[in-house]
Design a protein around this nucleic acid. Sequence first.
DNA 1: TTGTAGGCGTTATCAG
DNA 2: CTGATAACGCCTACAA
Lengths: 355, 355
Amino acid sequence: MAGVSPATVSNVLTGRRVRAESAQRVKEAASSLGYAVDRAASQLRSGRARVVAMLVPSLENPFFTSIVAAVERRLRTDDHDLVVASAADDVATEHSRLQALLSWRPAGMIVIPCTDDFAGASLLAAAGTPYVVLDRVGGAHSADTVAVDNVTAGLEAARHLIDLGHRRLLIVASARTLSNIKLRCKGIVEACAAAGLEEPALIEVGFDLESAVDRLQTWLSTHERPSGIIALTNFATLGALASLARFSVSIPGEVSLVGFDDYAWMRAAAPSITAIRQPVEAMAELVWDRLRARIDGDSSPVVQAMLPVSLVIRASTARCQTGDPAAGLPGQGLRRPSRTGGRQREQGTGRGAKA
Amino acid sequence: MAGVSPATVSNVLTGRRVRAESAQRVKEAASSLGYAVDRAASQLRSGRARVVAMLVPSLENPFFTSIVAAVERRLRTDDHDLVVASAADDVATEHSRLQALLSWRPAGMIVIPCTDDFAGASLLAAAGTPYVVLDRVGGAHSADTVAVDNVTAGLEAARHLIDLGHRRLLIVASARTLSNIKLRCKGIVEACAAAGLEEPALIEVGFDLESAVDRLQTWLSTHERPSGIIALTNFATLGALASLARFSVSIPGEVSLVGFDDYAWMRAAAPSITAIRQPVEAMAELVWDRLRARIDGDSSPVVQAMLPVSLVIRASTARCQTGDPAAGLPGQGLRRPSRTGGRQREQGTGRGAKA
DNA sequence: TTGTAGGCGTTATCAG
DNA sequence: CTGATAACGCCTACAA
């Protein structure tokens, strides 16, 4: 239609030097025909893929989907496409999805494994596909990894509560097997030790909200109530919140809560939730930088990157009111949880100027 | 490695009839080599794709990601893969992402458009790719559509509040341009008319939580306070919640709130949120049924499917307390918002037996 | 700068 | 039931 040979069309569409006039004609023809290069054929012939595959444990968890979204944005600017698969939190499914992903012959792969020992590593190695392990960096990986500083995350959460005078802490986690969780606990234990406190109790609530609430309620009704709770995943945060609500425990009046991950609903909740925020955008950035380097042939030794988290202080944490003599200021009575309380460093959800 | 010809390997791997012994040898070889058929080559030669493309307005909105997850699950059982792209809430991006998706030559496509008039329809038609429009079914589509009964959704939300004695309603929406939103409003207006009420005010809060809260606060401080609020998207729900919290308005004591979409955090919030739940799983099911039929050559007239929503009653709505004489029972004083109040038909977040 | 020829890994076809 | 062979749409190399 443009009156040129297929080779010229290819040259235009892949951005090679072509006479301006021909290029113009080709582009017009392409857009009027709605023509786009067939990726399958292109990839088959050129051997280059411009596709990155991503394997995540679940697409129901907003932490993972927000990372997927960030990675997709990043890839788009580099003209790559993303193929995602969900392992449905199951190692068998993870394996079969990995196979499926590999059949795309992607240029590279980003994996958030289901478990610490990522069994798929050998498949990836056999296929010669460069990959980066993200977030759940438990076992010994022979690939680049990008994760968050989980120890410091736990440490900061605990220190925040301890600074507020809390002595009885409770840790709520979805599951304790993941090394991510273990490291967060380690940080908490360190902070406690530094403050002369015992290792706090940990309760595992699983991945179902109903049973999470049940388990927490059982625990709370058979143990002395903690004054500070640290939830180690966004799901655990939800579970803790729901349980406390059912017991009509006021936050932060009776119990202070530090959540994990930072989502819009935590800002909108009453009270808004103090939380550890993971640097999703930075993780996406870094993981793609690493992966792209490997795709481009970088063969330097693997690097294990670790990103810092940040503690976003909102209204769900306040000075301990239980009157423990070691807790500093004994309370001004049982203060109603206040959305404008003094411990809130973030401006709520608005810019706050006119509030 | 299996000592057979490539054709036989292909026959085994695509599940055709082959002598058991050969099949066995091929499978063993494949798994020991980690071999999987190259999709690009397979698709090129066979013309069949086993890939479905999905274009969504955003991957940051949990409503869309939950649909993506449901579709992915559905496709997996039928041995298809999913390629997703996000339009980043922008029509220009939508167009370019659509092009990119089309270059995969997918067997079919599922589209949730950014706007009511889906400009990409012509591209899809030109490519001859079967597609189904999902959720945002505004304009006149020449393709199958799957959506929710938005009018009834609005009607039920409003009727629920009206039944509780509320007369002053406020509608909170992200944007009023989408026909989804208009239909939900229409339902609300219908319910109001049936109850002899005026058309309620509508406030548009945009897509940024900060400014949403600002706008709502401005409105609330310059108008008489409504006793019932209906939020028409999950984001609007968040905005309404955040605003009310900042004004220290108690829910449902002073204002009842009906939210949209149903997520875990709504169950865990204090109070838990009454909400319109969209049948995500059923939508995914239906959209794939339709699309698969079209892929398989069904050329019957297009169908516009409409699924019912359900109202999940929780603790954020209660009988109107403002003492309007028309509102039925005048209040038993200003009841503290209670998580176990009589209007709550759902059992909170747990099975509740021991609560 | 442009055209021609060949082949990427797979599957459809057809002969054996 | 299996093997040889051609062709899918494109890109690269090389020739013009």
